[in-house]
Design a protein around this nucleic acid. Structure first.
Lengths: 177, 177
DNA sequence: TGGCTCATGTAATCTGTTACATGATTCT
DNA sequence: AGAATCATGTAACAGATTACATGAGCCA
């Protein structure tokens, strides 16, 4: 069966764009993939090791400004692995909205405090939405790199869902009042 | 510290509405909470056991049509536990869209197959949206039970996000063509 | 009679996070 | 000098899923 873990695919996918260190992979996930994925160092570094053991990536130890760096690159086998996973049908999106759980059980908490949860949710969305929109704007300018068309898809997804979140927030507040 | 696991809170929350068996809890999660939460028997039954050991729920073994049933009810301690969790700020919504991962790395897969993923996503949303809308309609009719106002919040959330998914699907298909 | 749903539960396993350890460099 | 960031990694643990085991009732 081999690797079906998604963290493997995430790393292969990112390295398929350009060689990176584990640290950079983490940063990339926390910025670009933030709206639909997350991962910790505790899963990234061991995964890089096992990917190398299986020849899906190669590592190159170098240094930059005196700091040691381990730069990973995808191999042909790795790309093949990625492609294989990509063409399989999507199994399942896993959504766990703690926010919605607290709203669903909100009767026990009461209107006032439930409204506070909604407000906190809204505040966060309002903070993130402009970032996503900026991201879309920049991606729309870029025409040459083929990658960017696909990045645009996910950024637009973020924008649309975030806008729907805001719309819902208004409805939700009205219902509770 | 005690239980911070969300499955505990999900079960307490559901039992706070009415006493249920583990099997019924599972069904409830798979229908009503489906759009924002999931859980397996392998986590539900052991959790019910530990909740009982800690006196957050009580069990009553009975039978119905010859079938043995274990019906759980929430206790005052359990309700207190639930309330305590509800009033804490929301820590994090965990969203892991496998769909978006595959789109993000879509360059390696190509337009045709990426469009297939989008289509599969769209088909599913089109199938689920009417169910959610029906749900909203029914909840809007009910005025007496206070619980339903909170259920309505989450159902409306589902409707709004699902509509935004469909909107995005159109955009996504245009971008790739 | 065979298959589906109801119903409960456990063991093995998987996957990932948190917290810790370490140490260099850059910023203030 | 001290804090923050860069950078890599491990060990313990948490939390959940999958697969299996078991058995009764219902429907065709």
């Amino acid at each position: 069966m081999a690797t079906e873990k998604k963290i493997d695919q995430v790393i292969l996918g990112l390295l398929n764009h350009e060689p990176m260190t584990g640290y950079e992979i983490k940063k990339r996930i926390d910025t670009t993939l933030k709206y639909f994925w997350s991962a910790s160092f505790g899963s990234i570094y061991p995964t890089l090791n096992s990917l190398e053991k299986n020849c899906y990536v190669t590592k190159e130890e170098g240094q930059e400004n005196g700091r040691k760096k381990v730069i990973y690159s995808i191999t042909n086998d790795g790309r093949e692995k990625l492609r294989e996973w990509l063409k399989n049908p999507i199994v399942k999106d896993e959504l766990r909205y703690e926010t919605l759980l607290k709203l669903f059980f909100g009767k026990e908490l009461g209107k006032v405090d439930t409204l506070k949860h909604i407000q906190a949710f809204e505040d966060n969305v309002r903070k993130e939405l402009p970032i996503l929109e900026m991201c879309v704007n920049q991606l729309e300018k870029i025409q040459n790199e083929e990658d960017h068309k696909y990045y645009l898809l996910t950024a637009k997804f973020g924008v649309e869902t975030y806008k729907s979140y805001l719309k819902w927030c208004q409805q939700a507040k009205e219902i509770l009042r």
